[in-house]
Amino acid sequence: MFAQPMFADTIPDEVLMISKLEATSNAIRLRIAGLAPDQLYRGTRQEPSIAELIATAVDREQAYLEAFQRGLNEDQPRLGEPTPGPSFLDRDFAEDLARFFDLRRQTLDLVRNFSEEAFARRVTLPDGEQLTLHDLALRLQRHDAQLLRQISARKRALKAASGVNELLDMGVAGKLGENIAQ
């Protein structure tokens, strides 16, 4: 019953990578569901707010999409550093989130159509390191995993500071929802 499925070794790495990249958008939605708007912008000096994390993810997704496009269309492309966007406080979270979903959809549409030869194409990063498009996509997947861990950590910190659990433990919360901060 607890043995590995027989086909687990036959699933190509590219399929697993693409499925994880596809799952990121829904994972973000699930993690931010139930948070009040002010909680999305609440951060500390040590930990960025969820809005800042998403804004950074938008900038990263734009850079990676351009890298995939250039890697596919140019011979020996050299990627530039992404230009930082406007201040995170000047950006609208809903627009950033929608922009991330749109960019991710474009990235997935492009990467899904890569052949083995396309995944093997090489790009040169700004620091001079050369990577295949496959490795670049894996790097994006790792960034996604880190982003999701950071959002989860922020959400746990926000929930711990909301005081709902203390009210529920004392039996005085009544029918208060999970998000008392609203």
Rank of each mutant, 00 (worst) to 15 (best):
residue 60 R to V: 15
residue 4 Q to S: 15
residue 114 F to E: 07
residue 86 P to H: 01
residue 166 E to I: 10
residue 103 L to D: 02
residue 88 F to A: 10
residue 163 G to R: 02
residue 144 D to Y: 06
residue 59 D to Y: 03
residue 3 A to S: 13
residue 13 D to F: 09
residue 43 G to K: 01
residue 70 R to S: 00
residue 94 A to D: 14
residue 134 H to K: 14
residue 52 E to T: 15
residue 180 I to N: 02
residue 105 R to E: 10
residue 93 F to G: 05
residue 101 F to H: 11
residue 44 T to S: 06
residue 69 Q to M: 13
residue 41 Y to G: 13
residue 140 L to S: 04
residue 113 N to R: 11
residue 177 G to D: 07
residue 170 M to T: 14
residue 146 Q to D: 14
residue 131 L to C: 05
residue 35 L to W: 05
residue 172 V to F: 09
residue 108 L to V: 03
residue 56 T to D: 14
residue 158 L to C: 09
residue 103 L to V: 05
residue 96 D to C: 00
residue 95 E to I: 00
residue 48 P to M: 04
residue 21 L to I: 12
residue 127 D to S: 01
residue 43 G to Q: 06
residue 161 A to R: 07
residue 148 L to R: 01
residue 31 R to S: 14
residue 176 L to K: 08
residue 104 R to W: 01
residue 164 V to T: 14
residue 175 K to N: 15
residue 108 L to I: 02
residue 68 F to K: 06
residue 31 R to Q: 15
residue 174 G to V: 01
residue 17 M to C: 14
residue 134 H to Y: 11
residue 171 G to R: 05
residue 69 Q to H: 11
residue 14 E to A: 13
residue 123 V to S: 09
residue 1 M to P: 09
residue 174 G to C: 07
residue 97 L to K: 04
residue 13 D to H: 11
residue 127 D to R: 03
residue 162 S to F: 02
residue 103 L to W: 00
residue 97 L to N: 01
residue 122 R to G: 04
residue 21 L to R: 05
residue 93 F to D: 00
residue 176 L to A: 13
residue 85 G to A: 06
residue 76 Q to E: 15
residue 43 G to R: 03
residue 169 D to P: 00
residue 76 Q to F: 12
residue 79 L to R: 01
residue 28 I to E: 01
residue 86 P to I: 07
residue 72 L to R: 08
residue 144 D to I: 02
residue 30 L to K: 12
residue 90 D to M: 08
residue 143 H to G: 12
residue 16 L to E: 11
residue 179 N to Q: 12
residue 23 A to Q: 06
residue 1 M to F: 06
residue 50 I to K: 05
residue 114 F to D: 08
residue 83 T to I: 15
residue 167 L to D: 09
residue 172 V to A: 11
residue 18 I to V: 15
residue 32 I to F: 04
residue 122 R to P: 05
residue 92 D to G: 06
residue 75 D to I: 15
residue 144 D to V: 04
residue 78 R to L: 14
residue 81 E to Y: 10
residue 84 P to S: 11
residue 30 L to E: 14
residue 78 R to E: 13
residue 108 L to C: 04
residue 73 N to L: 12
residue 161 A to N: 02
residue 134 H to P: 03
residue 28 I to N: 05
residue 88 F to W: 10
residue 177 G to Y: 02
residue 167 L to T: 01
residue 150 Q to K: 14
residue 118 A to I: 11
residue 170 M to W: 11
residue 10 T to R: 05
residue 77 P to Y: 01
residue 107 T to S: 09
residue 164 V to I: 13
residue 59 D to P: 00
residue 85 G to H: 06
residue 34 G to K: 00
residue 43 G to N: 03
residue 180 I to F: 02
residue 175 K to R: 13
residue 80 G to D: 12
residue 141 Q to D: 15
residue 36 A to C: 04
residue 171 G to P: 03
residue 120 A to H: 00
residue 112 R to I: 10
residue 5 P to S: 11
residue 87 S to C: 04
residue 132 T to I: 06
residue 48 P to V: 06
residue 126 P to Q: 06
residue 110 L to R: 01
residue 14 E to N: 10
residue 98 A to D: 07
residue 32 I to S: 04
residue 171 G to I: 05
residue 164 V to Q: 08
residue 149 R to W: 10
residue 178 E to D: 15
residue 55 A to Q: 04
residue 102 D to F: 13
residue 72 L to P: 07
residue 9 D to G: 15
residue 44 T to R: 02
residue 179 N to S: 13
residue 137 A to L: 05
residue 50 I to N: 03
residue 142 R to P: 03
residue 132 T to V: 10
residue 173 A to R: 02
residue 1 M to H: 13
residue 30 L to W: 05
residue 95 E to P: 02
residue 145 A to V: 11
residue 108 L to T: 01
